[in-house]
Write a protein that binds this DNA or RNA. Structure first.
Length: 298
DNA sequence: AAAGCGTGGAT
DNA sequence: TATCCAAGCTT
């Protein structure tokens, strides 16, 4: 039995029942789930994903609406640039791929917001192809089970892809199952904080378990501050703009943060990123909102 | 290649 | 309370 075999067997009876794993889910549905899951936990993604798919069942549906609507629907999932990119991705798929999610990995990787992980995840989970799908869960599982180290490095490397590829069975469909199984194992058993080694199908094979599960010395990532950062200010500004139906006067944005310099910098950053657009001298809207007729236009 | 980018729940 | 962490991507 290989690790892949053990993982697949374990997955058959232990996998969570997530909507984007239903066989009827479209490749678009898989892509949306993958983007939403970038740095956002499953429990928060699930309801958002359902709403999103109900409103925009296909890429063409999303592409037909302005980015502002995507940013609103994104709600508080975090990193709203992902909503922008998902919208841009839908537009690109309409333009370049006849409104379909491409199955070719290189075409996937060329889409906005689709990187090393997401591209392979879509090719694998939506189209059943054989690719190493390497996210934080898989890196942790492989780091522990194969290398005996408590945690993986900070970011995915080419070597990680090779290491995971070598664990995949040759058959395409089986490899795809192994990929989702490795991820699920990392998500619910081989967790960062309190791994459930006694419930792990790798228990006897795991190099890390064999050496006594020595814990990592420090955090695997650099701790990221939030309070007081531009990110917090951007979040506050965007929260106001999300709930506005028309142009927002600058004064309404001024009240969210007292430091004028930082506030201006954060707003400029949102404009730079294409999330927000200035409208006239002192009004702001979410990207594309100026294309909707405003009350004063009627 | 390291830093920037949201948000909220768990410990 | 503060820190860690959650299916990363872009520049």
């Amino acid at each position: 039995m290989t690790l892949a075999d053990d993982a697949i067997a374990w997955y058959e009876t232990n996998a969570r029942d997530l909507p984007w794993r239903q066989p009827t889910t479209s490749a678009w549905g898989v892509l949306v789930s993958e983007v939403m899951l970038q740095q956002t936990p499953v429990v928060r993604v699930e309801p958002a994903w359902r709403s999103w798919m109900t409103r925009w069942p296909t890429p063409a549906d999303l592409a037909a609406d302005p980015p502002a609507e995507a940013i609103r629907m994104w709600g508080r999932l975090g990193y709203p640039r992902r909503a922008m990119r998902l919208h841009a991705c839908a537009v690109a798929m309409v333009e370049r791929h006849d409104g379909e999610v491409p199955s070719d990995l290189d075409q996937l990787l060329a889409l906005p917001g689709v990187g090393t992980y997401t591209g392979r995840a879509v090719a694998t989970f939506a189209y059943g192809q054989r690719h190493p799908v390497v996210d934080t869960n898989v890196r942790r599982v492989v780091s522990r089970a194969v290398e005996g180290k408590p945690d993986a490095g900070a970011a995915t490397t080419a070597a990680d892809l090779v290491a995971v590829e070598e664990l995949l069975p040759p058959d395409e469909a089986t490899a795809a199952k192994a990929s989702i199984a490795f991820m699920e194992l990392g998500a619910i058993v081989c967790t960062a904080r309190a791994p459930r080694c006694l419930s792990c199908p790798f228990e006897t094979a795991c190099a890390w378990h064999a050496t006594g599960e020595n814990l990592p010395e420090g955090p695997s990532r650099k701790p990221q501050r939030y309070a007081g950062t531009d990110r917090q200010v951007r979040g506050l500004l965007l929260e106001v703009l999300r709930h506005a139906s028309g142009p927002v006067p600058r004064q309404r944005l001024d009240v969210v943060w007292s430091d004028e310099v930082q506030r201006a910098r954060a707003l400029a950053g949102l404009v730079d990123d294409g999330l927000v657009e200035p409208l006239g001298a002192d009004d702001f809207v979410l990207a594309g909102d100026n294309q909707r007729p405003q009350p004063q236009d009627l």
